[in-house]
């Protein structure tokens, strides 16, 4: 399976993913809290270019705080630019979804360089319980 050099560790900053292409497959490589993740640039919802969306947070509330709204997961939420569907960049899972998740690829750091292996996905994609294109 092809192992692609993405760039130096420093070149991939939070909120500024690198897009790499191999054989018609485009993958976004993200840094989140010092960890790297790589996802197919295709949203499981309507196949939008999910990796080109902003990295941000989301609003949530919990019983423990009396349902007070809180801005959470800042820097960890990827928004698809088409319909603003939210994904957790650390897990690839849609936040509060039906089990949808981004297709993930293995990433490794070696000698200060980031590599992604584009081939068989590390995690099979899931469209959750929806039937989508």
């Amino acid at each position: 399976m092809p192992r692609i050099r993405v760039g130096t560790e420093d070149s991939i900053q939070p909120g500024a993913p690198a897009l790499v292409r191999h054989g018609g497959v485009e993958v976004g490589v993200f840094q989140v809290d010092g960890e790297f993740r790589a996802y197919l640039n295709r949203c499981p919802h309507q196949q939008g270019p999910v990796c080109t969306g902003p990295t941000t947070g989301t609003l949530a509330a919990a019983r423990a705080t009396g349902w007070k709204l809180a801005w959470v997961l800042d820097g960890r939420v990827l928004l698809c630019p088409w319909h603003t569907m939210e994904f957790d960049l650390l897990t690839g899972q849609r936040i509060r979804g039906r089990g949808e998740r981004l297709r993930a690829y293995p990433v490794e750091v070696s000698g200060g360089e980031v590599f992604v292996t584009i081939g068989r996905p590390q995690v099979e994609p899931s469209q959750g319980r929806q039937c989508v294109g």
Binding site: Q46, Q47, W82, H83, T84, C131, G133
Partner: peptide
């Protein structure tokens, strides 16, 4: 618009 549907979405309905 923000809530557009790609034709694929409808075509791939069962």
């Amino acid at each position: 618009h923000h809530d557009f549907d790609h034709p694929r979405k409808v075509l791939h309905m069962p």
